[in-house]
Amino acid sequence: MAAVASPAVRTGPCAPVPSISRPPRPAPPRADPAQRVVGGPALATAGLVVPADVPTPPPVPATSWLVADLDTGAVLGGCGPHEYATPASVQKLLLAAAVLPKLDPTRVVTVTAEDVDIEPGSSAVGLAEGGRYPIATIWLGLLLQSGNDAANTLARLGGGPDGQAGGVRAMNEEARRLGALQTHAVTPSGLDGPGQFTSAYDLALIARACFANPMFRRYDATLTAMVPAQPAQRKKGYQIQNDNQLLYRYPGALGGKTGFTDLARHTYVGAAERGGRRLVVTLLGAEIVDERRGWQQGAALLDWGFRLPRDASVGRLVRPGELDAAPASAAGTAPALAAAAGPGLRDARHRSARPAPLLAAGLAAAVAVAVAALLVRRRRAAGPSRPRRTR
């Protein structure tokens, strides 16, 4: 099979990230070549990758980032798209992708002691042990206030007989289904845990799955909500506000998620619509420079993305189940994995698709074997480790 040229791209170094005092970062897993070409060979870089002949993106002090089209799946550009990083609370989006479809929002549930067992001083919505809340309220507490108590509750409810551990397992299964092969969850909240990683590319896959769900979009764009009183616990009702400033300050904002831990630093996912086009930005390992917070850095990258031509891309977001659907044998897998690694686009709404450029047959076969082995290894992985208590 003859190789088809990849899109013309421009590469270079990412913007520098300020050196600050922080705890030692955990060693990431060894890079797997198959993971780094998912979405397109141009994405296998630790540096900047953007379409040729487009404006240079604004410098953002983040270790990695990516901008993509939520509808077509086109990756418009990125910095280290497949570099491992720790997620902090943006991991709550993976919890939503995995568990939201399973739970009846009108069901009223009782909060347990395990649910509210969180790191003192970490983000919480204030659920009361023994309190009874509609599941819809708990989702709002998760997405508006980044409640770690809400994350524990929802993971337990969505985890079946295995409770919270089952919820974390469901998150990892959903990550594999989405093609987020560099993502491994250990805690439902995003509090740091040994072996917990993601990437800017994987976060875009997860965010795309979330924004495809109307219920998620409704919760995530809510500005204020009431948490009901709990008379048995002598706790009054109170209002919570959405802490994603993009919703208040960026025209066309659809929502997203903020995050921070000492290890992960600032992480951010944001989405917006302009001129009938919906884009998502993901940032990992960001620092606040010149008082520009994560959402502001994300907004600058969204502005850059909206200025690009609609056909500009350096790769694409793979479709849910696409990598698992590839046949097991190397010969049978080559065409499917070549398409998965290529930069061709498919519309999520099944409109007419652009032709998907293919890698050379030799590279495709190598990728196929590597991905097949990777999926086998991950399916045999042990259950989640106990969370390490950090902010």
Rank of each mutant, 00 (worst) to 15 (best):
A155N: 12
G77P: 15
P228S: 09
P214R: 13
L76T: 14
P41G: 10
A2F: 14
A204S: 15
R377P: 00
A185P: 02
P387A: 14
P61S: 10
A364Q: 03
P23G: 09
R307E: 13
L358N: 10
E287D: 15
F260D: 01
R351Y: 05
V369G: 04
H82Q: 13
A98V: 04
C79R: 03
S146E: 13
G321T: 00
Q145S: 15
A124P: 00
G362R: 10
S19Y: 06
G383A: 15
A229W: 09
E174R: 15
T224D: 10
G383C: 07
A15Y: 04
Q233F: 07
P18R: 11
A96C: 11
D220P: 02
P57M: 07
M1V: 15
D149H: 06
S19F: 06
L157C: 06
G77R: 11
R354H: 06
G121T: 14
Y219E: 08
P120T: 11
S122K: 04
A372L: 00
L358Y: 04
P320S: 08
R249V: 11
N213F: 03
A68T: 09
A326K: 01
G294V: 08
P33H: 00
R22F: 02
A52G: 08
H82D: 04
L283I: 01
V9Y: 10
L93P: 02
Q233A: 15
A286M: 09
M215V: 15
L205Y: 04
I135L: 05
L345E: 12
T11N: 12
T258M: 06
S313T: 14
G160W: 04
G321Y: 01
G321K: 02
T258W: 01
Y248I: 00
A353F: 04
I206P: 02
R379A: 12
A68G: 11
I135Q: 10
L323F: 04
A31M: 07
V49D: 12
A356M: 13
V37Y: 09
D53Y: 01
P309M: 12
A209H: 11
A85F: 11
V314M: 06
A328K: 02
R351P: 06
A204M: 05
D162G: 03
V99W: 01
E291N: 13
P105T: 07
V111G: 05
A225R: 07
A353E: 09
P28K: 10
G131H: 03
A353V: 01
V369F: 01
P101D: 10
Y250K: 06
P343C: 14
Y219S: 07
L375A: 09
T258D: 04
R30Y: 02
L254W: 04
W304D: 09
P251L: 07
